[in-house]
Design a protein around this nucleic acid. Structure first.
Length: 864
RNA sequence: GGAAGUUUAGCUCAGCUGGGAGAGCAUCCGCCUUACAAGCGGAGGGUCAUAGGUUCGAUCCCUAUAACUUCCACCA
């Protein structure tokens, strides 16, 4: 092994070995239990961000753990075509050549899309590899693959034929930049400061006026009414009359509708049915005409008169000027509101009436709701079930059509001659009704999430009955972020239940969002994003993984910065160095069963602690408490293995006694090997690197058996901590006397109970407390000494005149105070009748015992 | 407007199906001790947001309050 820990020297080499040996591969095997996970497909043309790093660390830890436990484990990777995002990039590339979509035509455009996928599609996968993802790359899927596309068409046709898909006119959110409709969840509301324009609409009969307040003056050309609340006394007399729409000079009616809030603004609202969902509904109720004034490109159209051709937002200024000129602008005030924006490009979306394709949701949602309510589908943490249920219980129909060219084209065909219309899995060439060949296909494509919703089964071959689908489906766990529960998790669940009659997974593990070290969301605007590849380059994938997981709890947002990766690297370095020590001392060792050795107290202690660790690690991994498990592993490594066992083992290793040396070597090897296996899911590279150098190692740590609790190596009545306590107390006293660590002193031990224990550990005390010589004494020494007390053993450091009486007194009285406090506390508890009567017996007994011990201890201290 | 979450050491966060508060970093003191100075030893530092309640006992359960965060709905 290299002298210093340098992950860049071996991480990629090890990954290549794993790949080459097909350790990630998985095949249906009826003799084994399976464990399957499907990867949330990242955007094919995207790059990994720290959110991926976190999510993938979680998945890989779970998957590696299960694989080591002997499950036939499949982690199925893949990517998503992300139509809107990719189309925007291809359009951008065309623009640079001075071309438009329309100029190159649909077919060529799609070809360019594929070129794009091919050029950039592998970047993200390579990045995931460098993070250590142990997925079965041979099964890598892409939502636009032939078989996945077949799944999309198959499911569409099934929905369609069963009446779940319909075409309908509704107000939808339209992104003028992406030139497509987007669904409600893709429409994000952002706060902005704008103005509230108060505009005067004069009554047609000249008897007065109505002032309306609006945030969107540019839509006034599409106004077809002014609405007031029927209860509003101010406007009672004018309901039914007409007002004149300024600039346009057109009469429009005043209507009464509950929708208007009397308190807001002036209590009168201008109604633009074509450009606002509420106005649209109101328009339907009152039979109002619809006037479209904004075109798909976000520009005002001919209905806006002289403002035609201007951008909807830019037109506000000249419109305001015109209103002022006409004397109908009462006032403007600054106003904060929220406007819908496209989640992909951030452009303000335009509510717009149009004909779109929809999936009826109410009925599909029902079994998905039931699954969680019955406990068949579980979320970790549980609170996210509420988010899921809340969404499904208030679900709206799903707008699945997008006005794009990239993606899965809607397989609905219409006969130009007889008007026949239907959905087909194969392209329709001849009308089944009139045999005409004049067939057209719907121009729109499907929402990207439509194909993602099929992911857990389409990737396994569905709708074909493949052995993979049969064996690996349903999958076991889905790990994803809470930000896509509504986009994706919900849709996979109802799609899975509808098409396969099974839940696509049993458990959903939700991770939080990775924020910057100041707790802010990472964003391009702030420039505070962290590139995971940079972290991997600087600290290694292992450090990045551990730092993202350790000490966190599932579902919580985490603040992250390079410092954390550095901390993890420092720890891994420690593990690496400890391993180097073990390796250096076990080179030519003989491997023997631990039962063949006479174990002393420190051996029993480390082995028992290790068994506890194995048990707790399994328990925590099973409930996805990954951050707790790793913290325990790290704590054991440093505070038990390195600080005490390794140091103490040096005595046995250098004793010259072959039996002792053999024993120490075998214990060191066993503890380290076990520890590496427990750590492997978190830090796969370095554990493999070390493992490959261990005596008696197997082919790979990846496929070695995950440690199991061994009761034969778990001992009771461990006493080594009494020795530790004495060493600690001596060290503290030395520190108080400013005796540097490298200065040896003689130490006299006066055991209070177990003389044998201390007699057996004299050399341990000498080694770890800096003793030149350590002796057992039978009574208080006459020599002037610094006195060190613990509850089971006193230690005396003979220092002659260097003994500081004042300090000795202070230390003694401090100890006495402590004891008195403890005794008072115990007595108070035990004198409480309620405690004695109601607390568990073991607790009461323990308290009694503690009290008796402390009293004895105190007596002994005071007696001197 | 509806819902959820967070509040613990100077900082970043763990922990708790209720039984004496933890880690890392930072700070202070002492050490290059032959795995590790990316280290070792020692030390200081917290009414576990506030107020009530349940209990023999509350950081943990319940109820209010405050601050911050997020999700959903949305008033022109």
């Amino acid at each position: 092994m290299e002298k210093t820990y340098d992950p860049s020297k071996f991480e990629s080499r090890i990954y290549q070995t794993w790949l080459k040996n097909k350790y990630f591969a998985s095949r249906p095997d009826k003799n084994k239990k399976k464990f399957s996970v499907c990867m949330p497909p990242p955007n094919v043309t995207g790059k990994a961000h720290v959110g991926h790093a976190l999510n993938h660390a979680i998945q890989d830890i779970i998957v590696r753990y299960k694989r080591m436990q002997g499950f036939e484990t499949l982690w199925l990777p893949g990517t998503d075509h992300a139509a809107i995002a990719t189309e925007a990039k291809v359009v951008g590339a065309l623009e640079k050549e001075g071309l438009t979509k329309e100029q190159v035509g649909r077919e060529n455009f799609i070809r360019r899309g594929w070129d794009w996928y091919k050029e950039y599609g592998n970047i993200i996968c390579e990045q995931l590899m460098s993070m250590g993802d142990s997925c079965d790359w041979d099964r890598k899927a892409f939502t636009m693959d032939e078989n996945l596309s077949r799944a999309v068409r198959h499911s569409f046709v099934e929905y369609y034929n069963k009446g779940y898909i319909y075409q309908g006119k509704r107000v939808i959110n339209y992104c003028p930049k992406c030139r497509s409709s987007i669904s409600d969840i893709e429409n994000e509301y952002k706060e902005q400061t704008t103005k509230l324009w108060h505009i005067r609409y004069p009554l047609e009969d000249g008897s007065g006026e109505v002032v309306v307040a609006t945030t969107r003056p540019e839509t006034m050309f599409g106004d077809t009414a002014v609405a007031v609340n029927p209860k509003d006394k101010r406007y009672k007399n004018i309901v039914g009359k007409n007002v004149i729409l300024p600039i346009v000079n057109k009469p429009i009616p005043v209507v009464a509708d509950e929708y208007c809030e009397m308190e807001f603004g002036t209590g009168a609202v201008k109604i633009t049915p074509a450009h606002d969902p509420n106005d649209y509904d109101l328009g339907l109720r009152h039979n109002l005409p619809m006037v479209v004034v904004i075109d798909d490109d976000g520009k005002l159209n001919e209905n806006a008169g002289k403002f035609a051709g201007m951008d909807r937002i830019e037109a506000r200024k000249p419109i305001e000027a015109e209103l002022k000129k006409l004397g109908v602008l009462v006032k403007t005030e600054t106003y904060k509101n929220k406007v819908g924006c496209c989640c992909r490009c951030g452009t303000m979306t335009e509510p717009k009436v149009s004909e779109q394709w929809w999936v009826k949701m109410k009925e599909l949602a029902k079994p998905a709701i039931e699954a969680v309510k019955k406990g068949e589908l579980k979320f970790t943490p549980k609170r996210y079930e509420k988010m899921y249920l809340n969404w499904l219980e208030n679900i709206q129909d799903w707008c699945i059509s997008r006005q794009l060219w990239l993606g899965h084209r809607i397989p609905v065909f219409t006969c130009k001659d007889c008007g026949f219309k239907g959905a087909f899995e194969e392209d329709l060439k001849v009308c089944p009704k009139c045999k005409s060949k004049h067939i057209t296909q719907d121009p729109d494509v499907l929402d990207t999430w439509f194909s993602s919703a099929l992911w857990p089964f389409s990737t396994l071959g569905w709708p074909n009955k493949t052995p993979e689908l049969d064996y690996f489906y349903p999958t076991d766990v889905l790990a994803t972020g809470y930000d896509i529960i509504t986009f994706w998790v919900v849709r996979m669940v109802f799609s899975g239940l509808f098409f396969t009659k099974k839940l696509p997974f049993k458990e959903v593990v939700i991770n939080g969002i990775v924020r910057d070290s100041q707790g802010r969301k990472m964003s391009k605007n702030l420039g505070n994003g962290i590139d995971p590849m940079e972290i991997v380059g600087e600290y290694g994938a292992d450090s990045m993984r551990l730092s993202l997981i350790n000490g966190t709890s599932m579902g919580m947002d985490i603040s992250y910065g390079k410092e954390k990766a550095k901390e993890s690297k420092i720890f891994i370095n420690k593990l690496y160095n400890a391993s180097k020590f073990v390796l250096a001392n076990t080179e030519h060792m003989q491997i023997k069963p631990l039962s063949s050795f006479a174990l002393d107290e420190k051996d029993k202690w480390v082995l028992s602690k290790l068994q506890d660790l194995i048990r707790s690690t399994i328990k925590n991994l099973d409930k996805y408490a990954l951050g707790v498990a790793s913290a325990n592993l790290i704590d054991f490594t440093i505070s038990i293995f390195c600080d005490w066992y390794i140091e103490a083992s040096k005595i046995d290793l250098n004793s010259g006694n072959k039996e002792s040396k053999d024993k120490a070597q075998n214990i060191l090897l066993y503890v380290l090997t076990t520890l590496l296996k427990l750590f492997h899911p978190y830090i796969p590279f370095v554990t493999e690197e070390i493992y490959q150098n261990l005596p008696g190692h197997e082919e790979t740590i990846m496929l070695s058996k995950f440690p199991e609790y061994n009761s034969k190596l778990a001992f009771k009545n461990l006493k080594f901590e009494e020795v530790i306590a004495v060493i600690r107390a001596v060290r503290a006293t030395r520190s108080q006397y400013n005796i540097p660590d490298n200065k040896k002193v003689s130490i006299n031990l006066l055991p209070l109970e177990d003389e044998k224990l201390f007699a057996e550990n004299l050399n341990v005390v000498a080694k770890l407390a800096g003793g030149s010589q350590v002796n057992i004494i039978k009574s208080e020494p006459k020599e002037k000494s610094a006195k060190v007390v613990t509850s089971t053993c006193n230690a005396y450091l003979p220092m002659g005149d260097l003994v500081d009486e004042a300090q000795e007194k202070e230390r003694a009285s401090k100890k006495i105070e402590e004891l008195k406090f403890e005794i008072a506390r115990s007595e108070k508890m035990l004198s409480n009748a309620g405690f004695v009567a109601k607390a568990p017996k073991t607790l009461v007994d323990a308290e009694k015992e503690k009290l008796a011990k402390n009293k004895e201890f105190l007596k002994q201290l005071l007696g001197e």
